[in-house]
Amino acid sequence: MMLRRTLWIALIGACLLPSLALATARSAQLETWKLDPVHCMALFRVQHAGAGQFWGRFNDVTGTVTYPRDDSSAPEFNVTVATKSIDTGTAKLDRNLQGPDFFNAREFETMTFKSTGAERIGPRKWKVKGDLTLLGKTEEVEAVIETTGVIGNPVVAKAGWEATFSVFRSDFGMNWGVDNGALGDEVRLIVGLEGDTGPGA
């Protein structure tokens, strides 16, 4: 009886060991996380007429993140946002913002962010530098990015990130209303990302 139990434990152990080894290897290894557009969004905030802060969002956010589950190295982002997916809650205003005075969605269907470097500022928290391309102009921006969670098993998993940063839209040639204060120059962004890794991703 004792021998039988020992044999069972050995068998289960033998089965679990590769998974454990795989999990350990996975946690340190860089994985590519494909962003899930349903659970990604980019919120922006800009001052209107020198008064209130006005919020809007982009609904179509796609791309990939390269990141190890154990946070042993910095995440690398390659994110694309469809400019036509701008959503302020007012359809008529969305049309104006898609127009040539703002995002010029007719010519520039997307804006992109590609990371170029990162510096750790805390556990699962990084200061990520990257190139933001908007209206055909590329400027370096610095975003504070926090990994908000990693969940799953060695084969299939989900991870989430939240990035906050600010840009001056006039740096990209989007200068409507800057001089007369109709619309602020500084735009604050909060980007929520969720990515999947594994065979289905």
Binding site: P100, N104, E107, F108, L135, G136, K137, G173, N175, W176
Partner: peptide, 14 residues
């Protein structure tokens, strides 16, 4: 007044 002195070639087609 609106966009500053335009560049040539322009940064945006319009």
């Amino acid at each position: 007044v609106e966009k500053g002195l335009p560049t040539l070639p322009p940064e945006q087609k319009w």
